[in-house]
Every structure is written in structure tokens, then in C-alpha cells.
């Protein structure tokens, strides 16, 4: 009998969900943007969300740390769990939640402050350091984890806005990391970056998954394929298909997923 290489790991080998959407519905006023989306975000891995513009990727991502709360008229039904607890529970402190579930946006948005203060901001307001030396330590490790330390070590007092786009985005990642989150959400983090800056961020994402759980929205199929282990395809507010990235991009089960990722949508 021929030996068959079993390259697909059995289902029980999948990491457990760190976060999970359960029958999530989102409304903006009367308009429903998400329909019964149930989707795990697995521990210490990268989950990519793909789909055509307006399909609800950002909406779902924003549910994970309740960023929709600040949108007027937005209403969320269903449950989003973090380690099994519903983040929409009344007892949950939203500020604490956002420290555990950090976010990096499409356009790098450093504060108009020094590089140092950009990273130190979170740890300061959350009281994560006892003294200046400890805070210095947090700033340094965060910048190192974000792969920016070497480039800025000698100019921490310079404004963060003076960095290149790719550096600014890594500064924002350092800022997100500084409060020791468990989950990092990224909404098209590379869309304003050139291919080299993009490659650096992608490499960073791949390293970060050793310690963090990451959910990323991207319009680049190649990026989703490169950085994620799990991929969710959304269409018109529905989750059409979720699976291991290698399966989604080599042999998707749903015709709509196939049409989208091969560039056949019309």
C-alpha cells in the first residue's frame, strides 16, 4: 500500500478559541450589517478576515473589543466571548477589555507626542509600571517586539509622526503591545504601506503569534495566505466559509469563496 503523507492535521489538534463570536448580529440603525456570525478566533494564531468591501469584516472585528459601542445607533446581538466570558456582559469593564484586546488601524495613527510617550501612554494610564525604570523597560521591550527598537533607540524623544509610514505602523503595534494585550486586532494594517514595509509587518505578525492571538482584516488575498492560519470569508454580512488557511486557498468548499479568491466575483 502506498504511503500517503498526512499533511492535514486532525481537527482536535486545532488550538482552542481565545475569542468566539456566537450568532453575532449587528445593526446600524435599521440596517443589519452582520447576520448570525459564529466564528472562533483561535489562541496564539492569526485569523484573517477577507471579503468584498462592505461585507462586514471591520464590523465583526470591532465587536471583538466593543469598538462598536462608540458608533451611534450601532447595536450588537449574540455573544462575543473572551476566554469563555461574554465581553458584552454588563459586568465587563470596557477599558479593561480594550487593554486585553488591543487594536491597530488601517492608517498609522501615532499620537502627536514623542516616540517614547506613544508607547508609554497605555502602561501609564493602566498603571502598569511602578517607576520610570520599569516604564523604560516596557517601552524598550515593546519597541523590540514590534521590530522598531534598532531604528528609533537613539531618538525616542522625537515625535512619532516624524517616522515613515511603515515605522509609524510598527510604533502603533508597539503601542498596542505595551499594555500586554492577549489579543491584537488589525484592520488592514498594511494598506498604506509599500511592499517592504508590508513584508516587515507580516514578519512581525508571524512572530507575534507566539505570544498573542491575532485577528486581521485584509484586502490582500496573498497577505491572508501568507500570515494567517485560519481564514474567514464574509459576503453581504454573512460568514460564508471558515477554515484553515491552507484549505481555503487551495480547496475552498463554498463556490462563493472560490469565486472571490480566484478573482471571479462579479
Amino acid at each position: 500500500m502506498p504511503t500517503v503523507l498526512n499533511i492535514v492535521s486532525p481537527m482536535d489538534a486545532l488550538p482552542p478559541p481565545k475569542m468566539e463570536g456566537v450568532d453575532v448580529k449587528v445593526f446600524y440603525g435599521a440596517k443589519q450589517a452582520l447576520f448570525d456570525v459564529s466564528l472562533p478566533v483561535r489562541n496564539r494564531s492569526v485569523t484573517a478576515m477577507i471579503g468584498p468591501s462592505g461585507c462586514g469584516k471591520s464590523t465583526f472585528l470591532r465587536c471583538l473589543n466593543r469598538m462598536n459601542d462608540v458608533i451611534l445607533g450601532a447595536r450588537v446581538e449574540g455573544a462575543i466571548t473572551l476566554d469563555g466570558q461574554n465581553v458584552y456582559d454588563k459586568t465587563v469593564d470596557v477599558v479593561q477589555l480594550r487593554a486585553r484586546v488591543g487594536m491597530v488601524f488601517q492608517k498609522p495613527n501615532p499620537f502627536p507626542k514623542s516616540i517614547y510617550d506613544n508607547v508609554a501612554y497605555g502602561p501609564r494610564i493602566h498603571g502598569l509600571s511602578a517607576n520610570k525604570a520599569e516604564l523604560d523597560g516596557i517601552v524598550e521591550t515593546s519597541l523590540k517586539k514590534a521590530g522598531l527598537w534598532k531604528e528609533v533607540a537613539d531618538r525616542l524623544d522625537q515625535p512619532g509622526t516624524g517616522l515613515s509610514g511603515g515605522q509609524q505602523q510598527r510604533l502603533c503595534i508597539a503601542r498596542a503591545i505595551a499594555v500586554s494585550p492577549e489579543v491584537i486586532l488589525m484592520d488592514e494594517p498594511c494598506s498604506a504601506l509599500d511592499p517592504i514595509a508590508t513584508a516587515i509587518i507580516e514578519e512581525l505578525i508571524d512572530e507575534l503569534r507566539q505570544n498573542f492571538t491575532i485577528a486581521i482584516v485584509t484586502h490582500s488575498m496573498q497577505q491572508a495566505a501568507r500570515v494567517s492560519q485560519y481564514t474567514a470569508f464574509f459576503h453581504l454580512g454573512y460568514l460564508v466559509e471558515y477554515g484553515e488557511t491552507r484549505q481555503i486557498f487551495t480547496n475552498p468548499k463554498e463556490a462563493r469563496t472560490q469565486a472571490y479568491i480566484t478573482g471571479r466575483f462579479g
Partner: peptide, 9 residues
């Protein structure tokens, strides 16, 4: 073309 899925196969 960076083909995916059925195209890649």
C-alpha cells in the same frame, strides 16, 4: 497571476 484554489490546482 498569483493563482489560488482551483486555478492554482
Amino acid at each position: 497571476r498569483q493563482p489560488m484554489a482551483i486555478d492554482l490546482r
